[in-house]
Design a binder for these strands. Structure first.
Lengths: 116, 116
DNA sequence: GAAGTAAGTTACAAAAAGTAACCTTTCCAG
DNA sequence: CTGGAAAGGTTACTTTTTGTAACTTACTTC
């Protein structure tokens, strides 16, 4: 039993899985958008405000891609005037753990940078 | 006590933290590289093989940025010929939880896609 | 002495992201 | 009843990031 070759195998498996995730959550905005929508339903304009720095162009592109991957749903409400609400799907909400883990590291990192 | 405004605050905080992380782990390769190096020390050529699809140009760029952010260390060993080993730092290894969480989701996602 | 491996770099092309202006519908103030 | 302003985008144009492929230098094996 050559236990020394096992690591590589397991590593490749991990890399492959990460690559799969990054294909879906590519760009620097999607994870933030998901995190917002895990929090609550939001309208286009709310997301534009909440996801600091994103442009309208990027927001609509990213929302379309997330919708195509069935992570969010776009609801057009027939109010006057129409409002559009973006909502996380059940499947999308399985990413909550992921976004939380990232955010937690970010908070610790910020403390480390500022704290000393 | 207006509890209805609390969510936004907490959400912004999360988004900010995620943004901080994504500034450091930007691009689609860094997380994979970190995951590899969390696994074991690797040489440039090993990473090139392990991180499927990455080019030499991107690998050296990403490694430099990770090194600047003190997540990895570059060790030049005085063997004949010289070999260069990249190793995760103690701080970099605090990302292990993050890479694992991402990989876990990826594995579940793959099962979902293929499985049905 | 030809070819191969290791660890990169360089020049050029393609793709992704950012910027800013524009569009349509509807509401509200003067 | 005119003129903003907000909502939900889109379009044209620029800049930045990635990708491709060839090249480099030093050593090693056939």
């Amino acid at each position: 039993m050559k236990t020394e070759i096992e690591p590589i195998k397991e590593c490749s498996h991990t890399i492959l899985a990460i690559h799969d995730v990054m294909d879906i959550l590519n760009g620097k905005w999607k994870i933030s958008i998901i995190a917002c929508l895990c929090y609550k339903k939001m309208r286009y304009s709310e997301l534009l405000r909440e996801v600091k720095g994103i442009s309208g162009r990027m927001l609509s592109r990213e929302l379309k891609e997330l919708e195509m991957n069935q992570l969010i749903i776009r609801n057009v409400l027939d109010t006057q005037p129409v409002t559009v609400e973006y909502e996380i799907t059940e499947y999308g909400s399985t990413l909550k753990n992921l976004t939380n883990t990232i955010a937690e590291w970010g908070i610790k990192h910020r403390k480390r940078i500022i704290g000393k």
